[in-house]
Design a protein around this nucleic acid. Structure first.
Lengths: 117, 117
DNA sequence: CCTATATTTTCACATCTATCGAAATATCAT
DNA sequence: ATGATATTTCGATAGATGTGAAAATATAGG
């Protein structure tokens, strides 16, 4: 994950519809969701959703595959991993104690278990 | 941190100069850096840098204060904390094991110490 | 082959964003 | 006060982005 890719990933998430779609996909898990269902869920025309999904995919935050006429989209965990790693690598190059406070606020189950939120 | 604030914070970081400035500020720590020094470091005119800094500040990712003629900018750790928390809260609503892999890749010292990267 | 369904691509347009010179504001020193 | 320094605000412009209708592509079923 270099700076350019990070900017692209952040730009992909920096839009209301796309951020919502991404969160939906993360919740949906590895099976993902059908393109049409996403368009309906977000209440936008198919072509608009297609543009957004393409941007998420180009940014490395989503993957897609076809089954018959349907196209599935799923969150790309490796991509999200790369982005968060890039952002958090930054946060500890200074004073590591700042990072401790940062992590303690994250509501992720596995973090709060490990780091005693 | 609601969706709108998350979009604003992501948009603030989704630009090459601003992402670099933010990373510089994170490295610089609580004392921050002078506006003019940031403009020089990024090789942009003062007015351009001023716009970028204003956007980072509005997004809750930087704070500023004046000492005589100089204006200091520092990273707002609470803001970054909010954004990462928002993004990572998502990542664990599905399968928590996905989150484990995600965290193990983060290069942050305190995480690798606690979670044995 | 023809039609229906699901999605993308093309194209156009309106809006938002980035950039930066010039003018304005704030502070300090003399 | 005047001039010098540091930064912001204003204003204009070029370029990027979001939107969605219409046409094109891909697949399935009769």
């Amino acid at each position: 994950m270099d700076q350019d890719k990070a900017v692209a990933a952040l730009a992909a998430l920096a839009q209301d519809t796309r951020l919502s779609v991404f969160r939906l996909l993360v919740k949906a898990g590895p099976d993902g969701m059908i393109a049409g269902a996403l368009a309906e869920a977000m209440d936008v025309p198919p072509s608009t959703m297609s543009h957004h999904l393409a941007k998420l995919e180009q940014a490395g935050l989503a993957t897609s595959w076809r089954t018959s006429r349907l196209i599935h989209y799923a969150a790309d965990y490796a991509g999200m991993q790369g982005l968060l790693g890039f952002l958090m690598a930054d946060c500890c190059q200074g004073d590591p104690t700042l990072c401790a406070g940062l992590l303690s606020s994250i509501q992720c189950d596995i973090v709060s278990q490990g780091a005693s939120a």
